[in-house]
Amino acid sequence: MKFAIALFSPPHAPASRRALRFAEAVLASGHEIVRLFFYRDGVYNASCAMVAPQDELDMAAQWRAFVAEHRLDSVVCIAAALRRGVLNAEEARRYEREAISTGAPWELSGLGQLHEAAQLADRLVCFGGD
């Protein structure tokens, strides 16, 4: 079965870890992930600017490793990301900002990608809240 997974919560919310463990279980069960989509505060999961205390989970790092290892199509909503200061090199240049806070394996794109993923998948599962 094909899954599209959307995350609306930041890395420090329990929903982020839950979404990742769910995504891992989707793949481990032999299902497919057509796309991960990060929206609202979920875009912070794609930030490389966060520093987790050493004795705490680093969810942004875990997401990055998971996406890279499985070469997943992982889209961060560009409008939500800009608003929250999650910028890749191209957007930092465009808006003349010094900080680059995201990059590969994440792709910044529009909400159309969320709709496309939902249309392509057999199930859309959204994680938000706590």
């Binding site: 929206y39 529009g110 909400l111 969320l114 709709h115 249309q119």
Partner: peptide
């Protein structure tokens, strides 16, 4: 905050694709 606006943006984006 932005929650209501970001929800409507999903609707408008989907509408643009005639979904």
């Amino acid at each position: 905050g932005t929650a209501a606006r970001e929800a409507l943006d999903i609707a408008l984006a989907g509408g643009a694709f005639e979904l």
